[in-house]
Amino acid sequence: MNKAVFLDRDGVINEVKTKRVKFVNRPEDLYILDGVPEAIKKLNKAGYEVFVVTNQGGVGLGYMTEEQLDEIHEHMAKELAKQGAHLTEIMACTHAPHENCYCRKPNPQMLLDLIEDYDIDIMKSYMIGDRDPDIEAGNAAGIKSLMVTDTTPEAYKSFENLSEATDWILEDEKA
């Protein structure tokens, strides 16, 4: 079985709702947060599959097309790869928030699909998000869920950013 780290996108990998960008609807709106490539590279080196699981309701609401979302994700993967960071797969729920679909976080379906497809050991895996729906999805999938940029009692632990969470994961793995 494989071990994995599942990452939310907006607020964990890239800026969102900052002075530079409100929403990421085009590749040029994507600004990778400091330390993210290095953190993903450390996880890769430690043998973790690294997945992105993201709600992208802007597609369902008509703010962008699925093709534009694919361009954003290709751009993100290329920018991370330039610095030696590899993403195994990027999975997005493109339904509008009010559609109550089965795949939109806090539902765990995206995680469960990847767990099955990649033979992931949930006991050796982590979900990292910046909002309650991320944590709820990870918990529902049976994965230790870590919060960055905020705190919530539902999170196993909370950190300032992905770099801190990654360092903790690498120490927790040794325990």
Rank of each mutant, 00 (worst) to 15 (best):
K45T: 03
Q109H: 08
Y156T: 10
L170R: 02
Q68Y: 03
G62L: 01
N44H: 08
D29Y: 03
M127W: 04
S163E: 13
L43N: 01
N139I: 11
K22Y: 12
E164A: 15
H98D: 10
E66W: 04
N2V: 00
N161E: 01
D70N: 14
K41N: 10
N139T: 01
A92E: 00
L112I: 13
D113P: 01
K78Y: 10
V50W: 03
K124W: 02
S163C: 10
A141I: 01
I13R: 02
H73E: 02
S145G: 00
D130W: 12
T65Q: 07
K82E: 10
K174L: 14
L112Q: 14
S125K: 03
D134R: 08
E136S: 09
E66N: 09
N139F: 01
F6T: 11
A96Q: 12
H98Y: 13
I120N: 10
T88R: 14
Q56S: 09
G142R: 07
A165H: 06
D29N: 14
K174S: 12
K42H: 12
A46I: 09
W168H: 11
D132Y: 12
N55Q: 09
A85N: 09
T65H: 00
Y31F: 15
V59Q: 03
K174A: 08
S125G: 13
L170E: 00
H95E: 13
N25G: 02
E15M: 07
H86N: 13
T149K: 15
R104Q: 11
K144G: 04
P27L: 03
T65E: 04
G58S: 14
A137F: 10
Y118M: 02
T166G: 11
P106W: 05
I72N: 06
T65V: 07
A137H: 06
G35R: 04
A77R: 02
A140L: 07
S158Y: 02
F23D: 14
Y126S: 10
H98K: 13
G129T: 11
M1C: 11
I120E: 02
V50N: 09
L80K: 05
E67D: 15
H86Q: 14
K105D: 04
I90W: 02
C103A: 07
K105I: 04
E136Y: 10
K3C: 05
Y63T: 06
G57D: 02
H86W: 02
K19N: 11
E89R: 15
R131V: 13
E89T: 11
V5R: 05
N55Y: 09
M91H: 13
Y126F: 15
L114V: 04
M110L: 15
E49S: 03
D132A: 05
T18F: 04
D34G: 07
R26Y: 08
I13D: 07
K124S: 11
D113T: 07
Y102T: 15
K124P: 07
V148M: 06
Q109E: 09
F23E: 06
P37G: 05
D150E: 11
L114Y: 00
H95Q: 14
L111T: 03
L43S: 07
Q109L: 05
M1L: 06
V36L: 05
V36H: 08
